[in-house]
Simulated assay, not measured.
Amino acid sequence: MKKILIVEDEMITSLEMRMKIESWGYSVLDNVKSSSDAVETAIKNKPDLIIMDVVLYGNEDGITAAENIQKHVDIPIIYVTAYSSEMIMERAHKTSPYAYIIKPFDDNELKFAIELALKKQELKKEFDEKQELHSIISKNLGDVIWILDLKSAKFNYVSDSVEGLRGYTPDEVLEQSMEDVLTKESYQRIMKALPERIQSILSGDESLKVSKHLVDQTHKNGSKIPTEVVTSFLYNENGEVDRVLGVTRKLELPTK
Results as ranks from 00 to 15, higher is better:
Lys3Arg: 14
Leu5Ala: 11
Leu5Gln: 11
Leu5Gly: 07
Ile6Ala: 04
Glu8Ile: 09
Glu8Leu: 08
Asp9Met: 05
Asp9Thr: 07
Asp9Leu: 03
Asp9Gln: 06
Met11Glu: 14
Met11Pro: 13
Met11Ala: 12
Ile12Glu: 13
Ile12Trp: 02
Ser14Asp: 00
Ser14Ala: 15
Leu15His: 05
Leu15Cys: 02
Glu16Trp: 01
Glu16Ala: 12
Met17Lys: 04
Met17Pro: 00
Arg18Glu: 12
Met19Cys: 06
Met19Val: 04
Lys20His: 07
Lys20Met: 14
Lys20Pro: 00
Lys20Thr: 13
Glu22His: 12
Ser23Gly: 04
Trp24Lys: 07
Trp24Asp: 09
Gly25His: 13
Tyr26Cys: 12
Tyr26Ala: 13
Tyr26Phe: 11
Tyr26Thr: 09
Ser27Cys: 14
Val28Lys: 07
Leu29Ala: 07
Leu29Ser: 09
Asp30Ala: 03
Asp30Phe: 03
Asp30Thr: 05
Asn31His: 06
Val32Pro: 01
Lys33Asp: 08
Lys33Ser: 13
Asp37Arg: 03
Asp37Ile: 00
Val39Gly: 07
Val39Lys: 08
Val39Ser: 01
Thr41Pro: 00
Ala42Leu: 05
Ala42Glu: 10
Ala42Val: 07
Ile43Cys: 13
Asn45Ala: 13
Asn45Ser: 14
Lys46Ile: 11
Lys46Gly: 03
Lys46Pro: 09
Pro47Cys: 08
Pro47Val: 08
Leu49Ala: 00
Ile50Lys: 00
Ile50Pro: 04
Ile50Asn: 07
Ile50His: 09
Ile51Tyr: 03
Met52Gly: 05
Met52Pro: 08
Met52Tyr: 11
Asp53Tyr: 04
Val54His: 08
Val54Thr: 12
Val54Ala: 08
Gly58Met: 04
Glu60Asp: 14
Glu60Cys: 10
Glu60Trp: 05
Glu60Ala: 12
Gly62Ile: 11
Ile63Thr: 06
Ala65Glu: 10
Glu67Tyr: 01
Glu67Ser: 02
Asn68Thr: 03
Ile69Trp: 03
Lys71Phe: 02
Lys71Arg: 10
Lys71Ala: 09
His72Tyr: 11
His72Glu: 14
Val73Gln: 13
Ile75Asp: 06
Pro76Val: 09
Pro76Met: 10
Ile77Gln: 08
Ile77Gly: 04
Tyr79Leu: 08
Tyr79Asp: 06
Tyr79Gln: 04
Val80Trp: 01
Thr81Asp: 03
Ala82Val: 06
Ser84Tyr: 14
Glu86Gly: 07
Met87His: 11
Met87Asn: 15
Met87Ser: 15
